[in-house]
């Protein structure tokens, strides 16, 4: 007979091994650059920038617009414009299915969302691309949404800001995708003539037909730190020249050095930088010239 009697049953055996682990999953994220574990709430607070080494994580299109506009308020535009399958394209799966899957997994209607609102008090028409929708690729719908955005700005004397994030033109729409480059650039020509600003922000990654059209046509081109920006992708170049590419090649800092970007700006400074730029560009003369 024992001196003490157990009142409650044994704790051991009641919980499985699984339940006994401290649940940190989904609470911390490891920075791929500096390996620092980052508290997710902190990361959200810092706009998905590592609080230790300033590494820029991918940032969603919705977050882009929410952090750009005054008080995070804006009106979404042209949400009804979405991709069709004009060529009946089938690769490993039908393009139609690919579109549906992308809509579901990304929660977005298309590879770009666009909206109207105020930035530092200025009327701004902004678009943000999202890599999670078929690699941010540009097909007819993306081209149409950007062109409408520019035409709206022309109509209402607003400025255009576009955050690019894209692998380039969307193959599944063939030459139709290619022609979006011409379509958007023609609209930008009108915006340019009207004396209205276009600010292009190139984020990781911006390549192919998107770089080779509107993304490089900003009155100012802004890059996010260490973003991959180029015409040809690094793999294509390596195959062509049959050698490894130098470190830092096609990164924002490289483009800045070669005169292709006006500035490389930390995401947390982006809104203020854009406001400063708009303060310079948006004045009465802009409106006067239009009229």
């Amino acid at each position: 007979m024992s001196w003490f009697r157990r009142k409650d049953p044994k704790l051991e055996g009641q919980t499985t091994d699984e339940e006994r682990k401290v649940k940190t999953e989904g609470i911390f994220v490891k920075c791929p650059e500096c390996s620092e574990p980052l508290y997710k709430a902190d990361l959200k607070e810092s706009q998905q920038v590592c609080t230790n080494c300033d590494y820029h994580f991918r940032f969603s299109a919705r977050d882009r617009l929410a952090t750009l506009f005054d008080d995070g308020e804006f009106e979404l535009l042209d949400e009804e414009v979405s991709s069709a399958d004009p060529l009946d394209f089938v690769d490993s799966k039908p393009y139609k299915d690919r579109i549906e899957q992308a809509k579901k997994s990304s929660g977005l209607p298309e590879a770009i969302i666009s909206g109207k609102g105020r930035v530092g008090g200025h009327t701004v028409f902004a678009g943000a691309m999202d890599m999670s929708f078929i690699g941010g690729s540009m097909g007819s719908a993306v081209g149409e949404k950007i062109t409408r955005l520019i035409e709206r700005a022309l109509h209402e004397n607003g400025a255009v800001v576009i955050f690019a994030a894209s692998g380039g033109a969307r193959m599944q729409e063939g030459t139709l995708s290619l022609m979006q480059m011409a379509k958007i650039s023609a609209a930008l020509a009108k915006l340019h003539e009207a004396g209205l600003p276009f600010i292009s922000v190139l984020t990781d990654p911006t390549t192919g037909g998107v770089t080779a059209s509107f993304a490089m046509l900003g009155d100012v081109n802004i890059g996010e730190p260490k973003a991959l920006i180029g015409f040809a992708g690094p793999r294509v170049i390596e195959q062509t020249i049959r050698q490894k590419l130098p470190k830092g090649f096609q990164r924002s800092e490289f483009l800045l050095e070669h005169g292709m970007l006006d500035m490389v700006v930390d995401r947390r400074e982006m809104r203020q930088t854009i406001i400063r730029t708009l303060n310079f560009m948006m004045n009465d003369a802009t409106v006067r010239r239009k009229k």
């Binding site: 080779a212 059209s213 490089m216 180029g230 015409f231 040809a232 170049i237």
Partner: peptide, 23 residues
């Protein structure tokens, strides 16, 4: 698609032509 072409702004050269030709 080469290093030198990227360094000298292949994307910008193409983009600029698109805009200028449109006009």
């Amino acid at each position: 698609p080469g290093i030198d072409a990227e360094e000298r702004g292949q994307a910008e050269a193409i983009a600029f032509n698109l805009r200028e030709m449109a006009n």
